[in-house]
């Protein structure tokens, strides 16, 4: 596995800037296209924003682990948090083919994650949400 990045962020939305910077630096080092860099930032943003905004029952500080690496032509991401159990694979997604006036507002983030990534696996282990995402390049 080529070196990637491994970050530990706090559960604050401003921390997402650090993740975006890390993705851009990783993308540049690995020659990833502007589209791929954007889509990776988007996926991590959607998942982490959900966790930070809705995942915690208390106001305390929590750490979230964000890892990214390239391995055999695919990008692999790991997210680990101790928020409430949340499986993005079973979350309801909106009908993106509905007419404009019938479209539900919201729910789009998880749809984007599942559409952009080639593989998503979720498990809850010892009070930790563990999400592994892969994108072929």
């Amino acid at each position: 596995m080529l070196p990637g990045f491994s970050l530990r962020i706090a559960n604050r939305l401003l921390e997402l800037d650090r993740v975006a910077d890390a993705v851009e630096a990783f993308g540049e080092a690995h020659g990833l296209s502007a589209k791929l860099r954007y889509q990776i930032r988007l996926v991590l943003d959607e998942l982490l924003t959900n966790t930070i905004s809705y995942g915690y029952a208390d106001d305390g500080e929590h750490g979230i682990h964000v890892g990214m690496a390239e391995e055999g032509g695919r990008l692999r991401f790991l997210l680990e948090d101790d928020a409430r159990p949340f499986d993005p694979l079973t979350a309801r997604i909106p009908d993106v083919n509905a007419p404009a006036d019938e479209r539900p507002i919201g729910g789009l983030g998880i749809h984007l994650v599942r559409s952009i990534m080639d593989r998503v696996a979720y498990e809850r282990v010892g009070g930790i949400n563990r999400l592994v995402l892969e994108k072929d390049i």
Binding site: S33, A34, K35, Y38, Q39, L42, V96, N97, A98, P99, A100, R103, L108, H111, L112, S115, I116
Partner: peptide, 16 residues
Amino acid sequence: KDYMKEVFEISGYTEI
């Protein structure tokens, strides 16, 4: 921008 267009498509926004 070109690199963002696919996300508009995935969202179904190019239809509406």
